[in-house]
Design a binder for these strands. Structure first.
Lengths: 372, 372
DNA sequence: CTGAAAGCGCTTACAG
DNA sequence: CTGAAAGCGCTTACAG
């Protein structure tokens, strides 16, 4: 093999080190090496090295071994840019979250992201993190993510109806792999993995009713989210079935925050001082509501029962500990990741998964104690 | 221009659509187009298109405009895999965090990550998210990140002395761009951006001393972190200066958690029932300590003052609100990102930034009230 | 101011 | 079972 005089790389002055002298011994130290070098050292073609790397069964066991030995010896690592440029996939997924203050310090997102990262890494996929600020959306960066080949697919967390135009709808027409995580849209053809919110509320309402509660206030997260509208709807059906008029000041928005939950609780109790139970669209608002109730001199659960939604870690550690609906958020993240990869690889062309929810009973709920 | 009959791509059966018919009009809809196509349509070379894209001043204004017009018309977006393979940078950075339960639901990491993402996106850089589980480290994935050209540089959050071997030390020898975020190592040549912990404790000790406190307990986060050892050291110096023996059961480890803080507080108070103040290595442990104190029937701050470290959002919203040392974590994230990019681009070759900290006084501290 | 050409480091039909 | 060769879509000296 006299051929292949290592050619000079004239146009790359500040390159990351030349491939070597072409005569280098088998035990050369860590000089960065490419597939061509490995092929030469193992006395095979680059095609063979490539196939060894992808465990192509067409390569004989002997060749496999020989090539792998050279790879280990020289510490060769394939350049993933070249792999993806030649190949079909980037093996990278994007997590996109809206620009919320403290999104990354929120246990809700934290659970979802933990599920996603665990699964992605298990599948040897990488993850990119994007925050969808207004200019991100305006400049079509979400589309760029796919079209410029940053990633194979996208997971959208925390988006709602306000993000339809100019963002979510872009994915519909183009058929780009994207999965909405823990929300869904009724009239847009988007893939999603979501918890069964309707069943969750229904369990709450059944439970509260059994405890004798009729005067139940509902603190809504945000009507822009379909899941929150589902909560409201089922709540209202149950109120009506119990002979109550839910439109009548029993519902208030808490914007998903502790502070909002406190304000909403105040609004409901001012209007209906005889409220015996408060149900909230997430745990944070429940904590805010409990905080307000204690300031108002009402005991939980003796005077007012409080029941949340999410079952974040925190909910078990407040006093009184919070009864709530458990959402399998970690599992939602795992499944969303799984399904997205199947979508990317063309094994499925529609994702519409629903995961079950169930009631967790702790100390914040009790028998209704009617008050004036 | 009769040349360039669009050549058939025989080897790519499931390709993402052919480049077109080679005669396509200027207003063709979104068929995916590459730089060669754009060049042909604008009647220039690909080199020129490339230079237009990088705003190379050598290109005339007229050509600039013409090329940009074609780009807009056909909706051309450069393939970033090809760009990075040919070019010097990936323009991607990695955030690596250890595999802690709920790392992504922790406001401490949340603040750092918010700062990093904001800055990175402002600089048109992308971010990858990695969780360093044991096998991530064992399989040298941290090295792969750079060597396989996933990213240009790495930001390490939440690592300490236990991660030296087989992980952090790998970066030292290879000189790969990596910045340790909010920790540092005395005898390893690693870049870092960190808060001034020593000044923070000193302010705490001065303040408590002025309030008449001498019997001050210290709840340590974890001795594996240099920053926590700094806290301990300065605390001890001050105790000695006040004639106390700090080794004598005044210090206890709280492992950074609420539960750990409660246990540590119990240990210190059992040993020293006359403790008048507790200082903790982070806010979470302070909350745990406060929780324990109230269970033990001690009032904060009347009986025992409590002072934390971090100043997370939450600290202002507990009762009593928590006095603490403010850490500019968002700014640490921003600066770390900034400096890492400068390192990557060879503008600097050493990062050792220290950001100032300051005391925040709220309700959890008061004059020492000596008890038996 | 612009173009022709080499090169980045892979993957994949195709042929044998 | 393996190799030669084309191709992925860019960037960058070099030459004019």
């Amino acid at each position: 093999m006299i051929e292949t005089p290592v050619k000079e790389d004239a146009r790359r002055p500040k390159g990351r080190g030349a491939p070597g002298d072409g005569l280098k011994g088998e035990d050369a130290p860590k000089v960065k090496v490419n597939m061509r070098e490995v092929a030469r050292m193992a006395d095979v073609s680059v095609a063979t090295v490539s196939m060894v790397l992808s465990n192509n069964p067409r390569i004989s066991r002997a060749t496999q071994l020989r090539v792998r030995q050279v790879i280990d010896q020289v510490g060769y690592r394939p350049n993933r840019l070249a792999q993806s440029l030649s190949g079909q996939y980037t093996n990278v997924l994007a997590i996109v979250v809206p620009a919320l203050r403290h999104a990354f310090a929120d246990a809700y997102f934290g659970e979802l992201i933990s599920g996603i990262t665990d699964r992605a890494h298990k599948m040897q996929m990488k993850l990119m993190l994007e925050v969808a600020k207004p200019d991100f959306i305006k400049e079509d960066r979400h589309i760029e993510l796919i079209e410029r080949r940053f990633v194979d697919g996208i997971l959208c967390l925390g988006f709602n109806d306000r993000h339809r135009h100019g963002f979510l709808e872009d994915f519909v027409g183009r058929q780009y792999p994207m999965v909405v995580v823990n929300n869904y849209f009724k009239d847009m053809d988007l893939d999603s993995v979501v918890c069964d919110y309707r069943s969750g509320v229904q369990q709450v309402m059944n439970f509260l009713t059994q405890l004798g509660h009729r005067k139940i206030g509902f603190i809504n997260g945000a009507p822009e989210a379909q899941t929150q509208r589902d909560l409201l709807e089922v709540y209202q059906e149950n109120m009506v079935a119990n002979g109550m008029k839910p439109g009548d000041g029993w519902v208030s928005d808490g914007r998903f925050t502790e502070a909002g939950g406190a304000v909403a609780a105040a609004a409901i109790l001012d209007r209906h001082p005889d409220t015996t139970a408060l149900f909230t669209g997430n745990d944070k608002m429940a904590l805010g509501a409990m905080h307000y109730l204690s300031r108002r001199g009402l005991r939980v659960p003796q005077d007012v029962s409080v029941i949340g939604f999410d079952d974040l870690q925190h909910a078990a550690f407040v006093s009184p500990s919070l009864s709530t609906v458990h959402l399998p958020l970690y599992e939602v993240g795992v499944l969303a990741c799984d399904k997205l990869v199947e979508r990317v690889r063309g094994k499925i062309d529609r994702v519409a998964e629903v995961l079950p929810t169930h009631l967790i009973l702790r100390e914040s709920t009790a028998l209704a104690a009617p008050r004036a």
